[in-house]
Computed example of a mutant assay.
Amino acid sequence: MEWRCRGITWSGGAPGLRWQGGKVSPLAYGQRLAFRAVGPRRCAGARGNPCPLEAVVPGRSTGGRCAECARLDRAHSVAADTFLDDPQPYRVYLAWFGPGMTKVGITAEARGEARLLEQGAVTFSWLGRGPLMAARRTEEVLRQTLGVPDRVAYERKRAARHALPPASVRAGEVEELHRSARAVGGWTETLEPLEFAPRDHVEAFGLDGLPPLAGTVFELVDGGVVTGRLLAAAGPDLHLLDPGGRCLALDTRLMGGWALRSAGEVGAGADGAEFSVPVTPVAAPEPESAQGELF
């Protein structure tokens, strides 16, 4: 039987790997992972449906979909502003990913915190609830008025997780943003405002004591092995300690569409498998300018 990956899921507030057919394998921090990618990588399909062409997609694509399935997947997407008549209630949230990295977003109320876990939000608070279009307008007003983005780059999120300030500092930044958002006029006429109540995901993500980030997986390749101890998971990312002692981040969106086998099925066995997929090292910090010595 071929196990074709569909990426990560945050079901019940805990991470797991999804497989074609709907099966989910729970992930536990501290467990050892060792798998080999078997190509070619096939399109992951759209909205739970398999790609009718089983199209081959590039290893570096985080979407893992062919052009047609990518179009279909976004055809009813709230995030893409293509689904505007959903009658269910929505919530506006304020999320924190690292020092100076906050964003405003919306999610269906029925999904609870799932959207925040999927994005890797370390701390967040709800701001308001109500109809979809009112939530969308509020999101846009706050973006324009407060200069808060609706997206934060994954690269910045990953790096910030390895040097987090105390929980009080994290919550303090969100509280300040919440206070500023409440002071913006107009939106409370169409949405029910919600009091500041910080929620922290450090424990859920396993981020306490995470060692410095040494690199990120660039792509999976046919025959390439990923092996290491799972230290943490946040959003789509797995943080692994490889056999060489490096802390590496693997974006599970790169796994979608690959058939994965235990590394022990081929070659030296799981205990002897070596990490052999391309990794981009974290750039060393630039030395401080010596300009002050010139004056």
Rank of each mutant, 00 (worst) to 15 (best):
I106V: 15
G21N: 15
A153W: 07
S289M: 00
W19D: 05
G185V: 08
R65T: 04
W187L: 12
A263I: 07
D208S: 14
A80E: 09
L194N: 02
G105W: 05
D150K: 02
L210S: 06
V141G: 08
K103W: 08
V104C: 11
A171I: 07
G267E: 11
L116H: 02
R65P: 11
G292V: 15
A67E: 14
E68C: 07
P243M: 04
P40E: 08
V104K: 10
G63L: 11
A234Y: 03
I106G: 03
G12K: 03
T280Q: 13
P87H: 07
S61V: 05
A268S: 15
T62L: 12
Q20S: 15
P52W: 04
L84S: 06
L194I: 14
D81H: 13
L142D: 13
V57P: 03
R18T: 03
Q88G: 15
H162G: 11
R143Q: 12
R253E: 11
G112W: 01
P26D: 10
A197I: 05
L240A: 04
L230V: 05
E288D: 09
V266P: 09
W258I: 06
W187N: 06
G59E: 10
G267N: 08
Q144I: 06
S168L: 12
A249C: 10
G21Q: 10
R182G: 09
L191Y: 02
G22A: 04
R229G: 07
V202H: 00
G186F: 00
D86M: 12
R229V: 11
G120W: 02
G45H: 06
A75M: 05
E68P: 06
A75D: 10
P58V: 02
E140Y: 11
G12S: 05
P236Y: 06
G100T: 04
L248V: 14
N49R: 14
F35S: 07
G21P: 14
Y93M: 12
E109C: 10
A197G: 10
L164V: 11
V104G: 01
E155H: 12
R42P: 04
E155P: 04
V78P: 02
G269A: 11
R156M: 05
V202T: 08
R158D: 03
R32D: 12
F124R: 02
P89E: 10
P211R: 01
A108S: 13
P149Y: 09
F295S: 15
E173P: 08
G63Q: 03
A110C: 09
L220Y: 07
G292E: 13
H239C: 13
R42S: 03
P50T: 04
C43D: 07
A214N: 07
K23D: 13
E195T: 08
R261V: 15
L220Q: 06
A160W: 00
D150M: 06
K157Q: 01
R151K: 12
C51V: 09
V122D: 01
A37R: 00
F196A: 01
G257S: 11
D208H: 15
R36M: 14
V279L: 13
L94V: 12
R111K: 15
V221N: 09
V92M: 12
E189C: 05
R32P: 07
V217D: 00
M255T: 13
M255N: 03
P285L: 09
D85W: 14
P89N: 08
L240P: 00
A159D: 07
T102S: 13
P165L: 00
T123D: 04
R111E: 08
G292T: 09
V148W: 11
G228L: 02
W187T: 07
W3P: 04
